[in-house]
Structures are given as C-alpha cells and as structure tokens.
Design a protein around this nucleic acid. Structure first.
Lengths: 212, 212
DNA sequence: AGATAATTGATAAATATTTGACAAGCTAGG
DNA sequence: CCTAGCTTGTCAAATATTTATCAATTATCT
C-alpha cells in the first residue's frame, strides 16, 4: 500500500531468496554480493538487485548485502515475524504430511486443529493434536481465529467446506484439491495442484526444455 | 521444435485448461466458446484464444470449440497419451499420498517402485507395491526405464539421490524437498516447494491482494 | 435461401518483466 | 588519508505477456 506496488513476479521470488539466505546463514556466510548470489540461485544479478530494491536499499556499495540482516528483513516482508494459525481439513496422507512437517511451526504457522470426515481417523492424534469430526469445524471456526485453512480432501468436499468457512470469515485457503474454489475475490487462495505439476513434467519430457 | 516456440506462460496454463475441459465433459457440455470458458476460468477470452492458437486452429467461427476434441488435443500436447514410469523416493506421508492418488495412473503415470531408507517401512507394501531399500535404487534404475523420480525425502538426501540418478540417465525429477537440486541443465526439475507456497499466503495476509 | 448473431484467429496496442549499463559511493590495503 | 577495485541502485532498452479490436467465417433462425 505504501510502496508503489510490488509486482507479482517479485513476490513469487521472495520465498526463494529467503530460503537461500537461510542456507547461507547456516553455512556461516556473513555477506554476499548480488553477483555471488546470482550464481548460487541461477538468476541474473540485475534481477536480484532490482527485486530487493522494491523494499528499500538493503545493500551497500562496495560491500554487498549483509546476509543475516537481509534474511530478517525479507522475513518481515513475508510476515514471518508474526504467528499464523493453521487448520488442516483432511487427515489423510497429505494432511498428515503437512501436520508432521515441523518447520512450518518454526516459521510461525501454528496448527490449531485437524479435521476429517472419516470416523476411523477422528479421535486419533497427530503430533499431539486430536483429529476432530468435520461437523465440528464451523463451531470451531467461531471459537478460534483461523488465519489459514489447508484443504487436503477431495474436490467436492473442498469446494463445499471452503464456501462455508469463507462465510465465517476465513481469509486464506491453502488448496490441495484438484479444483478451483468458489470463494469471494477478497479471499486468498493458494493452490497446490499436484496433477498440473506432473503434467508439466510430461510436457517437458515430450518437448525438451525446462523452465523455472 | 516444429512450432515457432511456445512461451512458458502458455505451457503453465495448459494443464488448467485440460482440467476444466475434463470437468465440462463430465457435465455433458459438448461445445464452448472462448467467452463462456473465460467466465468459468476467470481469465480473458482473448488469452484463451491466443493460447490455443499456438497449437493450431481448434475452434470454429460462430461455433466455438468442441470440448471433447479440445480435451484430447491438449492431452496429446501434454504427452498424456503416452505412459510414463514414476518412481517414488521416500515412503513417508507425502510419498504415500502420491502413491495412493489413483488419478495419476489414469493419466498414464505408472508407479514402478517406491524406495525408503527406513527399515521400518521397507518390506511393507503401498497399493500392492513393495517398499524397497534405498540402497537398491541404482540397480533398479539400471534394470528399469525410469521417466520421473519423485523425491519426498529430506533435502540433503534429495540432493544426493538426484545427483546419482541423473548420472544414471533419469531425465526428470519431481522435487518436494525444500531445496534446489544440483543436476545438469538438460535434466528436468519440477519443484513443489510447500514452504514457499505457505510463505506467499503469509505475504498476502499481510498485504492484501491475491494473485493467480 | 438470406439475414442476423455469434465467434474465431490475427494483428496491433498496452502492460509487465527482465536485462544491460554506468555513475556514485563504499571498502580495503597500503 | 588516498587510491584501486567492488558493488549497489537506478534508468533505459530489450523482451515477454496480456489485452483490445475487428475482419472474416460459420451457425442459426425464419
């Protein structure tokens, strides 16, 4: 809002910068130039400088960028300095994979609940979190502030649950169902369509050439 | 190669057209205009016409596009008329999620093997496929033609396995590890970085605005 | 069969994104 | 404290992508 307007292309790249900077910190690297980083990340140095400049001058001429500082600043831009509550709908393999990946919690994404329709799963626990019956999701949403809902259920159910929860004020969906969701435009939808990803591989196998 | 050169942006959209056309077939829709499709998919009609025209004139003035025909043609472009062998490295929740999602097989992606390093998992079966010890992967790769390797293991192992298998001629990796792979440029890498996806949601929660 | 409405494919214009180039400023070494 | 060598931030040029427009063609209706 303050800034003129950050382009989508830049936003899509930010998490990757964040990841690489984190790796550099682990390696004990204190400073890095756009040129060194460009070789590591296989993008142009010009793009890195221009991307980062959207958010202010993090670098210094003759020195480069301070890795730790840049990491923290990009983290703030991405909102990783704040906690976000996450609810998982679907306790199948995919839902459990997300629930069990500990690094999300480290980044401030707190799993507040897991829901499923299958009575064989409800009542069991995943990482200490009880799997509740999906019927309870609306009451739960009223009692808890939910930032993000991960949908790891079949498409018909995903569409239905998303509509209901959007009405209750959920602002973001992380959609793993193989469908588009039907929610108002102001609701955030980030979809992970695995079948589309696999089809792109198929295309590339046919036609050679790889893309970002 | 034949065609002048299809832009990346177009390729990235093809699987989504394919999915929507599949849904239209299920609904019994026989023909559709770029304008109707544009409302369904929430993209411009102009973009649809231009995208499809990259591959030849599938439409007809005054009529629109024949849904079934377009679906089949896009399927061919994506290489879905051919079978592809798939090996999954990592029998954790994510690997099992992929193995258990039956629709991949319908699209011609045949799971030829599942591998893991964990002795508690090796020997068990997933959808009738035995989980083998990761040590056997290189022998397996020599005996079988593997088109695609899905990596659902931690990053250090993923980098290592990808390097070894790329040397043995594997041409495509479906990478779920939170890292870049280190393979030659002619090897296809399609990465699904869940943490980056989640960070984009975090950014959007902070800054409003949603993007494709 | 002719008139009207629908709809594509193609072209051109408008936007968006990426890359190249370089002055200005900082570092580091003597 | 001065100089040589880096390296950024910025501006402009080059590419890539998206959108608007419209002539030409086909379907549909009477």
């Amino acid at each position: 809002m303050l800034e003129n307007k950050i382009s989508n292309a830049v936003i899509r790249r930010l998490p990757r910068y964040y990841r690489h900077l984190g790796e550099l910190i682990e390696m004990g690297v204190e400073r890095i130039s756009s040129n060194e980083l460009s070789m590591r990340m296989k993008v142009t140095a010009s793009q890195i400088r221009q991307d980062l400049n959207n958010f202010g001058g993090f670098g210094q001429q003759g020195y480069g960028y301070n890795v730790k500082h840049l990491y923290v600043e990009i983290g703030k831009i991405l909102g990783l300095d704040k906690k976000h509550s996450l609810v998982i709908i679907g306790a199948g393999n995919l839902g459990r994979a997300i629930a069990n990946y500990g690094n999300f919690e480290k980044r401030g994404f707190i799993i507040e609940g897991i829901f499923d329709i299958n009575p064989k799963l409800t009542g069991s626990t995943i990482r200490g979190i009880e799997v509740r019956n999906l019927d309870e999701i609306e009451d739960f949403a009223k009692e808890h502030e939910i930032d993000i809902v991960a949908l790891t259920i079949p498409k018909a159910q995903a569409i239905n649950v998303a509509e209901r929860l959007a009405r209750l004020g959920v602002k973001a969906f992380w959609n793993f169902a193989h469908t588009d969701l039907n929610v108002p435009d102001n609701v955030i939808v980030e979809s992970v369509h695995l079948s589309e990803s696999l089809m792109r591989i198929s295309y590339m196998l046919e036609n050679g050439s790889s893309f970002d």
